[in-house]
């Protein structure tokens, strides 16, 4: 009987741990399936470009979107709304941000690509979202994003949105 009890106790402790193990599992799962629109981390352009088979005739629309959380007193917007891109090539765009306040503020952007299945094929090679951004009082900046839409992007996608939300970093 002690064996049964021991096994049961062990199982419940393991399952408690499993709840926490679900976090890395979920993130991996999201990366594989594009579940929550998070794209994979930073990648170098050369590596990606080597693997591309470019179809010059194909064009997809990449739309840029920016939000600022209501607790952050910044202005933040894309400098261009849409870009026609050929999958497999490197492109660059810029986002404009301005600290409207008289204080230095640090923010961090979250990003999301929709539709989810497109996020699997969206490679950012340079992005302000990889680091925290500090803007001095009234400072304005242009923040570049370079990206490659993978040429393996499935045929059913012809428009995708790259969306950022800037949050105030709580100190």
């Amino acid at each position: 009987m002690n064996k049964t009890v021991l096994k049961a106790v062990l199982a419940s402790v393991l399952m408690f741990g499993f709840a926490f193990a679900l976090i890395p599992l979920y993130n991996t799962f999201c990366e594989i399936t594009g579940l929550n629109g998070k794209t994979s981390g930073q990648v170098t352009a050369d590596e990606i470009l080597k693997k591309q088979i470019v179809n010059e005739n194909r064009l997809v629309t990449v739309q840029f979107d920016a939000s600022v959380n209501s607790k952050l007193n910044w202005e933040f917007r894309p400098t261009e709304l849409n870009m026609q891109v050929t999958p497999g090539k490197l492109y660059k765009t810029e986002f404009y941000a301005k600290n409207l306040s008289d204080k230095d503020i640090t923010g961090r952007a979250t990003y999301s690509v929709t539709p989810g299945k497109a996020s699997l094929y969206f490679n950012k090679t340079e992005c302000f979202c990889f680091t925290e951004q500090t803007l001095k009082a009234h400072e304005e900046v242009l923040m570049p994003v370079t990206f490659i839409v993978d040429s393996k992007l499935t045929e059913d996608v012809n428009i995708m949105t790259l969306s950022y939300t800037f949050y105030k970093l709580e100190s």
Binding site: N69, T110, S112, T161, S163, T165
Partner: peptide, 14 residues
Amino acid sequence: FGWKRDAIPGFVNE
């Protein structure tokens, strides 16, 4: 319109 979709802070749904 036939659907509902969640609006989730920090993420964009389509």
